[in-house]
Design a protein around this nucleic acid. Structure first.
Length: 256
DNA sequence: ATGGCTTAGTTCCTAAGA
């Protein structure tokens, strides 16, 4: 079973690329982020025509997350995180698929830091941690997959110096992520590539792709029962180099 | 990069992203 997280950076602009990915790779589950689409304009028919059922949580202009399942419809379990009722960003969608609880996560970027956007990011990590702990306590087999906007370690980035002041690798961002993982989750890509050097995103600017100047912020966290089934984890990197590509590449795990 | 892409919406500019 192949489970993917993919920040598409606009599902309407990326639709040909996404359908191509589904057709070529036939993943069982795909968590999408940055739909940049309202609920009404989500291209459900095109995704269904590719053989996938979908549940989505859209927002006009930015944010937006979805869960896709091959030959089946995901069953929605939770939309959004508790703890901040006035928060209307579409960044969390939890579904039940093939006996697993799968959440599609789009954690706030947090730039510029310091500032209110960075404060929101840190609060959002805390709120995610609260939900993650509930899932562990319930002992449900779960995967938290998405764009975490956190570079966990120095060997997860092409240049520590170039990114030193970025919200993605501030000590507070890393501490929030580490505390989440420390609840008992397994960072699948890290586990399979422990020496680092794996990138999931390459900036559109300054020839980042051509220079291989990327970093790792798209993560799949596995609950203990799911971690026992972990086979491989990686990045379908070549999709970043295609025409009209997202700045992120699909990042995946396979389970036994 | 104090921003050189890219996307979307309020379009011939601004906001947001990473």
């Amino acid at each position: 079973m192949k489970i993917v997280t993919y920040n598409v950076n606009g599902i309407k602009a990326r639709l040909p690329r996404l359908v191509e990915y589904l057709t070529e790779q036939q993943p069982d589950v795909v968590c999408l982020q940055e739909l940049k689409s309202s609920d009404e304009t989500f291209p459900e028919a095109d995704i269904r025509a590719a053989g996938y059922g979908a549940v989505w949580h859209g927002q006009k202009g930015f944010n937006g997350v979805a869960v896709l399942t091959k030959g089946a419809d995901p069953v929605e379990r939770q939309r959004g995180l508790t703890g901040e009722p006035e928060d209307e960003h579409s960044r969390y969608l939890e579904c039940e698929v093939f006996g697993l609880t799968v959440a599609s996560i789009y954690l706030p970027n947090g730039n510029p830091q310091p500032g209110p956007k960075f404060d929101y990011k840190l609060r959002w990590i805390d709120r995610l941690r609260a939900r993650a702990l509930e899932l562990l306590a319930a002992e449900v087999p779960a995967i938290l997959a998405g764009d975490y906007n956190v570079i966990p370690n120095d060997d997860d980035v092409f240049s520590v110096k170039a990114m030193a002041s970025d919200a993605l690798m501030q000590p507070e961002s890393r501490a929030g992520y580490r505390a989440l993982v420390a609840q008992g989750w397994t960072d699948a890509v890290r586990t399979r590539h422990p020496r680092g050097g794996v990138w999931t995103v390459w900036d559109y600017q300054a020839g980042a792709w051509q220079r291989d100047a990327g970093f790792r912020i798209d993560h799949l966290l596995l609950s203990p029962a799911v971690a026992d089934r972990l086979a491989e984890a990686g990045v379908d990197k070549d999709y970043r180099g295609r025409e009209k590509a997202s700045d992120h590449a699909p990042t995946w795990v396979t389970l036994r």
